[in-house]
């Protein structure tokens, strides 16, 4: 059955909404369900996040570009997309397609875009909850263990990030 909202994708769940006292059945696809705030049992709203990110990026471009040409915008957008997280080699384009970040360091790599995205998702981008201090010694230990560096190296090579790969290889040599 096709989705009642977009009429494009297959519906994956039926939502019974009571509108003005009458229950109404809505058959929704994963994406439309996510947009309606229904977490389906199958997966969380990943594509919706990707689309939201796209809007955020457009807004940031308009803000930064000062009314630049379309071509300039496109160039700036692809430049932004080319930025890679140095830890996991993920790009904003990866995030947009999966709706998931690659690793904790992605939050630093894409900080500007994410701050705006978080503001839109939560209404606020500043954490005011539990303050946490990680256990120090362990962080240092695990920040660069051999196995971990090898994983980073493989990911960097897969992403054709050869300069980064060379750096990581150097650090592995030191540890070996």
């Amino acid at each position: 059955m096709v989705c009642d909202n977009c009429r494009e994708r297959d519906s994956v769940l039926k939502l019974v909404q009571v509108i003005d006292g009458t229950p109404k059945e809505l058959h929704l696809c994963e994406r439309c369900a996510a947009e309606k705030g229904v977490e389906s049992a199958v997966a969380a709203p990943s594509p919706a996040i990707g689309e939201l990110l796209q809007k955020v990026q457009q807004q940031l471009l308009v803000g930064a570009g000062g009314g630049g040409t379309g071509a300039g915008d496109a160039a700036a957008a692809s430049a932004r997309d080319a930025v890679r997280c140095t830890f996991c080699s993920a790009t904003l384009a990866d995030f947009r397609s999966t709706g998931r970040l690659g690793c904790p360091h992605c939050y630093e790599a894409f900080e500007g875009s994410l701050r705006e995205l978080l503001r839109r998702v939560h209404g606020n981008a500043r954490h005011t909850g539990r303050v946490y201090m990680p256990p120090r010694a362990e962080t240092a230990d695990h920040g660069g263990s051999l196995g971990e560096l090898r994983d980073r190296l493989k990911r960097a090579i897969e992403a054709e990030q050869f300069e980064l790969a060379a750096d990581i290889r150097d650090r592995i040599r030191v540890l070996e």
Binding site: R100, L101, L114, L118, H122, A125, H127, Y132
Partner: peptide, 13 residues
């Protein structure tokens, strides 16, 4: 600034 970091930004903080 963002608190606990999660794979999906809908859970961050």
């Amino acid at each position: 600034e963002f608190g606990f970091l999660t794979a999906c930004p809908t859970n961050t903080g």
